[in-house]
């Protein structure tokens, strides 16, 4: 569908990150960092060495974790860039 030198389908992305450190963010805002062991078509995820963060604070560690796919907002490669926290005010939006 979207072929081209620079296109990368979701399945290409998943092949790339399998077995690598990832950040998984849920719709609730909770963040999991760990190694992506595997996942399926529902975006159910199995992770290893999982750390659970709420508001940037580490609150739990799990050896293995299964995350039900319907809760997943995104799967991200782990970035070395420092997180920015920027507060703007609502009047920027009309």
């Amino acid at each position: 569908m979207s072929a081209g030198a620079h296109s990368k389908s979701p399945s290409d992305f998943l092949k790339l990150v399998l077995g690598r450190p990832v950040i998984v963010k849920l719709n609730s805002g909770v963040v999991y960092k760990g190694i992506l062991a595997c996942l399926d078509g529902y975006m159910n995820i199995a992770m290893e060495q999982t750390e659970e963060y709420v508001n940037d604070q580490l609150i739990h560690k799990y050896g293995d974790a299964f995350i039900r796919g319907n809760n997943v907002l995104y799967i991200s490669t782990q970035t070395s860039k420092k997180k920015k926290l920027l507060v703007e005010f609502r009047h920027h939006r009309q």
Partner: peptide
């Protein structure tokens, strides 16, 4: 790459 050997011999190929 996604496979993982568990101590009890089971293989994790899919999350379930």
């Amino acid at each position: 790459e996604g496979q993982k050997n568990n101590q009890d011999g089971g293989m994790v190929e899919e999350p379930l």
